[in-house]
Each structure stands twice: as structure tokens, then as C-alpha cells.
């Protein structure tokens, strides 16, 4: 039988195991993510790993797989549904495509004015309902308090105002929410694999790309698109998610520990992100990037343009009056 081939090298742990496991039998949770370890989120994951080790009894450990080593986000989520001990990061746009339609709004342009509004929303009843819908789909949210960064726009020609952006072809990740969201701002969004973006910018196949500074800088886009427009069109928080099938095999203590250390690492992450954002900006300036800040009037112009996105709820399969519901949930009228 299968068990027969397996001796002491097994690392399977079931829910019946209590906290007296030694390290050999410890549950190894695999965290797979697209970023590299040197990015803030990678550093914060090392912190999570360390916190779990310090606060736990060694019965549960974290293994890190940066740079999509363990597979793409979709593959990892599928493997969670098959019961694999996997955690990955995902955001509203992804969950929308996954069938929890309303969560797509989290990635809408200019939804949040401040990060406080964002955290207010993730603590709201509305968010709890959405989390439950995800659980019905077999996905358990572990932490939703991680800043991923503000998304800005880099272009290969000078862009100073919202009007300059009109008609430019900007690469966005391949999903409906981000495509429509960026189209609403007047640009022409196009999907493309992140690996191809550098060359496409260099040759002018596309005019720009949008992402948090860490990714823009990490992909070295400043070499081929030396104009940074600080649009901040999405305040991008991210979530860590695992499969309910795996989560339910953990003891209540292990569950509690995984969640609490994940949130604690999130706070550490948010400090890092703030600090790094300034650093990345400085690095970009040092490498000759022209940085353009928007005036408050120009921001208003974008915010107004973004309204057309929120009226497309039917296209996205949203609940009625979702925009108003969400505004109310973050404490706005």
C-alpha cells in the first residue's frame, strides 16, 4: 500500500494530531507568491515565518516559494481545493473572476481615498459576508491587512495630465476589473504577460504599464519607460488565502496561530511598504526617471472619470447598489 512505502520520512499531519508533534512531523505550510524575497512582501513573509516559529510549538512551519516557483496563482488556488497545504496572495480582481463577483469592486479605480478607509472596509460586516462566500467556495482568508502598495503608471513618453493619458495603450493584468478600470480613466488597457512588458515598452508595442513601485522598479521598466505618473489609481491591499480543506485539518491552536502571526506580519509589512515606497521613488529619480505628481484638481478629474466604471456593475455581475453599499461600509455616505 501507499503507507507501506512511507516510513519516518512522512510529514503528513492530520487534525487528530495534538500539539506534541516534533519537528519531523510538523505541518509544512507552503506559501507560494509571485514576488521575490527582496521585495517588502517577501521580507514580511520571512517575518511571518519567524513569528510562527517563535510563537508556536514547532508543530507548524512555513516554507516560502517566491517568484511563482510553486506555480501560478490559479494553479495554487486549484491545489488548495485539492487539500494541499498551500497559501498564496490574491486580491479582489482575482476573487471576482473566481465567482465572488462583488469583491471585484475592491480593485476599482479611486475607490479608497485613504488607507484608513481601506482597513475600515476590511473590518466591516460587508467584508465578512464576502469572506463567507469565499469559504463556501473552499477558500479561507487568513489575513487581509497587508498593503501591497499604491498602483502608479509608467510610460515611455511624457504624461503630465489625465488628458495626456487618453488613448495610450497601457498594460494591465489580464482581468476584466482592471481592464475596465483603466479604460474608465481614458487609457486603452491591454493584457500582456508581465515578462513581455519590458520589451513591449522598449519597442513601443505598448505605451505604458501600471503597478506598485516595487514591481515597476523590480522589472526595471525605468530603463525603457522613464516617465512615472503618480496616479495612485488603486490602493492595493492584498490577502493571504488557503484552502478550507487544509485549514480544517489544523488544530484550533494552529489555526489561531497562523491567523494571528499572519496579521502581525501584515503590520510589519505595511511599515516596510511605506518605507520602501520612498526608497523606490528615490532610486527611480537617481536613474533619471521623470516623476509627475497629480494636482488635486487632476486627481478630481480622474475620480470623476472613474465613476463610469462603478456604473458598469451589471457587466461585472455585481449586486444592486454595490458602490453605495461599499461606501457605507467604509464609513462614507
Amino acid at each position: 500500500t501507499k503507507e507501506g512505502t512511507q516510513s519516518d520520512s512522512s510529514n503528513i499531519t492530520t487534525g487528530e494530531n495534538d500539539a506534541t508533534n516534533n519537528a519531523v512531523d510538523a505541518v509544512k505550510v507552503q506559501i507560494g507568491f509571485e514576488n521575490s524575497l527582496s521585495e517588502p512582501v517577501g521580507q514580511a513573509l520571512l517575518k511571518w515565518q519567524q513569528l510562527l516559529e517563535e510563537q508556536g510549538d514547532g508543530s507548524i512551519l512555513i516554507e516560502l516559494f517566491p517568484d511563482s516557483q510553486l506555480g501560478t496563482k490559479s494553479e495554487l488556488i486549484d491545489s488548495m481545493l485539492l487539500g494541499e497545504p498551500v497559501i498564496t496572495l490574491a486580491d479582489g480582481a482575482f476573487y471576482a473572476d473566481y465567482g465572488v463577483r462583488d469583491m471585484g469592486i475592491l480593485f476599482g479605480p479611486f475607490l479608497f481615498e485613504t488607507w484608513e478607509q481601506c482597513w475600515a472596509l476590511t473590518e466591516s460586516d460587508w467584508y465578512a459576508e464576502q469572506s463567507e462566500l469565499l469559504e463556501e467556495k473552499g477558500l479561507k482568508l487568513l489575513a487581509s491587512n497587508w498593503k501591497y502598495g499604491e498602483r502608479h503608471t509608467m510610460t515611455n513618453s511624457l504624461v503630465e495630465t489625465p488628458d495626456d493619458l487618453r488613448g495610450m495603450i497601457i498594460r494591465v493584468p489580464n482581468n476584466q476589473i482592471q481592464t475596465q478600470g483603466f479604460n474608465a480613466l481614458g487609457a486603452t488597457a491591454t493584457g500582456m504577460a508581465l515578462n513581455e512588458v519590458y520589451q513591449a515598452l522598449q519597442t513601443g508595442t505598448i505605451d505604458g504599464a501600471e503597478n506598485p513601485l516595487a514591481t515597476l522598479y523590480g522589472r526595471r521598466l525605468q530603463e525603457v519607460a522613464p516617465y512615472l505618473l503618480m496616479t495612485g489609481h488603486v490602493k492595493n491591499f492584498t490577502t493571504w488565502v488557503t484552502g478550507t480543506a487544509f485549514f480544517d485539518t489544523l488544530t484550533p491552536e494552529q489555526q489561531e496561530l497562523l491567523v494571528s502571526t499572519g496579521r502581525e506580519a501584515g503590520l510589519y509589512n505595511n511599515d516596510l511598504v511605506d518605507q520602501y515606497e520612498e526608497e523606490y521613488l528615490q532610486l527611480m529619480l537617481d536613474e533619471g526617471v521623470t516623476v509627475t505628481e497629480l494636482s488635486s484638481k487632476e486627481v478630481d478629474q480622474f475620480v470623476e472619470a472613474a465613476q463610469s466604471f462603478y456604473q458598469k456593475g451589471d457587466d461585472f455581475g455585481w449586486s444592486d447598489n454595490l458602490y453605495e453599499t461599499v461606501r457605507a461600509a467604509m464609513g462614507l455616505n
Binding site: 488613448g167 495603450i169 489580464n174 486603452t188 488597457a189 491591454t190 493584457g191 504577460a193 508595442t205
Partner: peptide, 14 residues
């Protein structure tokens, strides 16, 4: 569609 029409297919990759 992208180069001439400036209206890229959004569904091409899938």
C-alpha cells in the same frame, strides 16, 4: 486591433 484600431482584444490571451 491593437496597432491599427487601438482597441485591443481583452480576451486574446485566454
Amino acid at each position: 486591433m491593437r496597432y491599427v484600431m487601438k482597441m485591443p482584444f481583452t480576451w486574446l490571451e485566454e
